[in-house]
Write a protein that binds this DNA or RNA. Structure first.
Length: 578
RNA sequence: UGGGGCGUCGUCAAGUGGCAAGACACAGGACUUUGGAUCCUGGAUCGGAGGUUCGAAUCCUCCCGCCCCAACCA
């Protein structure tokens, strides 16, 4: 281990831009290793998921870090499944993990490893420990072990089996492997120090008996290594230089080092960073599993979920997620990042890329009285004002159109620039129209239709006489538009920190009842009938949307709102109300 | 009360003894055929108290607060 007592500060060795100081403490450590030659300038990381659930955006942070660092330093990053607990792991999860890492844009090439591939080697290491008198077979039950472990403030007591002879240990351990004992009957324990203030060092279990079949090794084994033993050895076997993990493993580092030191094998450096927390959601596989199993969401890929598959189905781009991960930085502070930043990254990405289209989510019919009954005009519309190379398209205009219900107020408040009785507004890419009459349902009083007139001179949205109009509305031609279902998503949880539960509360109590609003009968411009599952659009003045990959069908499209546009009118309105 | 970490703008986060980066959010303004985008402008003295120093967010001391650890989970 390097201890930073050094003179000059030039970061040498390594590579290119990664050598610049002050980016984050992990890169600083690597720079130091490169400077002192600890790993001969080699940088080799790994992303080590346990296949017991789907990856979420917290994992994305780790993936970006591990693959990102490897790339920056001209090194490699392995994908390694930490599959040492067959009772929780499944192939479905390994498949999803591979898909997600790939989708995020990272490539582990042929370096797809499994801790389970090392079981035989790990067994060998365990035997070595036994031979060195550094491990023993213990017959205590888990309850007894717990009882003898001591507490945070009291030391533990030594197991009565702690001083078995090496021969007896060897024999017993071999028989553990052979399946002579039932699940949980015995364990192999590292002989360290029952009085250590670090509880992880109080003779931790190294291998346990579990008669359950493993998703890769089947029934080949009935003993399985514990995380602390398997992980450091796997890192060593793969000659990982920097084993980056989250803060809760900080206390485990002495044990990580102990195994490698006693075994005298390649010694990777474990480095811990703070895991990601996000506002208005939870980022723990256990809690996400509970939401899935309890039917609180439609599955791991529910667009409300912070899982990679959920974000993908919701419409997030891998670029925006990577950008987010780079922006949040890496440190050791226990923090909760605002989900607004993720939304910002998506908007920034899509603002440049997404073609603009017109979609009326809550349609209100408008009849243009002085427009010819059967006329249809093609209006030219820019596809993306941010990028003229994306060209234009034609939109059909006719006498009956739909506008957004929110774009009309019979009694407009201050600063409301949109349509109202007697008001003139611009229809984007079309004409100026003026509202001359409001048709209501005689019973309910609900506005059912607007009668307007248009100014023929304002075609394409400009008045030759130079008169200005404050509002510009999007619209679709009534008879040309297609009908679709649109799902508007809000935060999964209504509370900023759902992990903050008082006594008697459960995180699920804070689920946002309005997280999903489904709108039927939305009217979209005709071209959207051909929208594909990889397309992402900006619905003008609404936000960014994509076709739902699961529920959308040929004649009945379903769109997901990825993220809304910033809405300064909503802010003004809110301020006016208070 | 044991051990391991962490405390810099509302939220992340640089800074490692020489006048506190940046981003998101927020506020104000400009521009605008998206109340979008873009463009200006504004704001923290660094958990607290002492001390060392010409000079401290950066060093020392004490205090306060938060997180993690007592699975044969990872």
């Amino acid at each position: 281990m390097s201890n930073g007592k050094n003179s000059s500060g030039k970061a040498g060795g390594g590579a290119g831009k990664a050598a610049s100081a002050g980016r984050d403490f992990i890169r600083a450590i690597i720079d130091e290793h490169n400077r002192t030659g600890r790993y001969d300038g080699r940088v080799h990381t790994r992303f080590p998921p346990e296949p017991n659930g789907y990856l979420h955006i917290g994992h994305a942070k780790s993936i970006c870090l591990n693959f990102g660092i490897a790339a920056e330093y001209g090194g490699l990053c392995n994908l390694r499944f930490d599959d040492t607990n067959p009772s929780k792991e499944e192939v479905e999860y390994v498949e999803s993990i591979k898909e997600d890492v790939r989708w995020l844009g990272f490539d582990w090439e042929d370096r797809e490893y499994y801790a389970s591939d090392y079981f035989e080697q790990l067994y060998g290491y365990a035997v070595e420990l036994v031979k060195m008198g550094k491990a023993y077979v213990c017959d205590l039950s888990s309850d007894e072990v717990r009882e003898q472990r001591g507490t945070l403030t009291e030391p533990g007591r030594e197991s009565p089996y702690r001083n078995r002879s090496i021969e007896e240990n060897l024999d017993l351990f071999e028989r553990m492997r052979a399946g002579e004992f039932r699940t949980g009957a015995r364990t192999l324990r590292a002989k360290i120090d029952m009085t250590s203030p670090n509880i992880n060092m109080r003779d931790p279990v190294t291998c346990r008996i579990m008669h359950s079949s493993h998703h890769r090794t089947g029934d080949q084994w009935c003993i399985y290594p514990m995380y602390d033993f398997a992980h450091c050895c796997s890192d060593s076997i793969e000659r990982i230089t920097h084993s980056i993990c989250t803060l809760e493993f900080e206390d485990h580092r002495p044990l990580y080092d102990w195994y490698l030191e006693e075994l005298g094998i390649f010694h990777s450096q474990q480095i811990e960073f703070a895991r990601l927390n996000l506002t208005y959601t939870v980022l723990s596989k256990r809690k996400l599993l509970l939401l899935v199993e309890g039917g609180y969401v439609s599955g791991w890929d529910d667009p409300l979920m912070p899982t990679i598959s959920g974000l993908r189905r919701r419409g997030y781009t891998p670029e925006s997620i990577r950008d987010f991960c780079n922006r949040i930085g890496v440190a050791k502070n226990d923090t909760r990042v605002s989900i607004d930043l993720l939304a910002h990254c998506l908007r920034e990405d899509l603002n440049k890329q997404a073609p603009r289209v017109m979609a009326v989510l809550r349609p209100l019919k408008v009849v243009i009285d002085n427009y010819p009954d059967d006329a249809i005009e093609d209006m030219e519309a820019v596809n993306n004002p941010e990028d003229p190379s994306m060209g234009t398209r034609m939109l059909p205009f006719s006498r009956e159109i739909y506008i957004e219900r929110d774009d009309f107020r019979e009694d407009p408040p201050k600063k409301f620039f949109r349509l109202a009785p007697g008001r003139e507004v611009r229809l984007k890419h079309a004409y100026f129209i003026t509202c001359i009459d409001v048709v209501k349902d005689t019973k309910t009083g609900e506005v059912t239709e607007l009668r307007c007139t248009y100014d023929h001179e304002t075609r394409s949205g400009d008045a030759p006489d130079g008169r200005k109009v404050k509002g510009t509305l999007h619209w679709v031609s009534a008879k040309h538009s297609i009908t679709a279902t649109v799902r508007l998503y809000d935060h999964l949880f209504a509370k900023e920190n759902p992990d903050d539960v008082g006594k008697g509360e459960d995180f699920k109590d804070f689920l946002n009842p309005n997280a999903l609003e489904e709108l039927k009968g939305c009217r979209l411009e005709p071209g959207l009938a051909r929208a594909g599952s990889v397309d992402r659009f900006q619905f003008l003045r609404h936000g960014y949307f994509c076709v739902d990959s699961r529920d959308s069908t040929e004649g009945a499209p379903v769109f997901n709102r990825i993220v809304p546009l910033r809405d300064s009118w909503a802010k003004i309105e809110k301020k006016q109300r208070s």
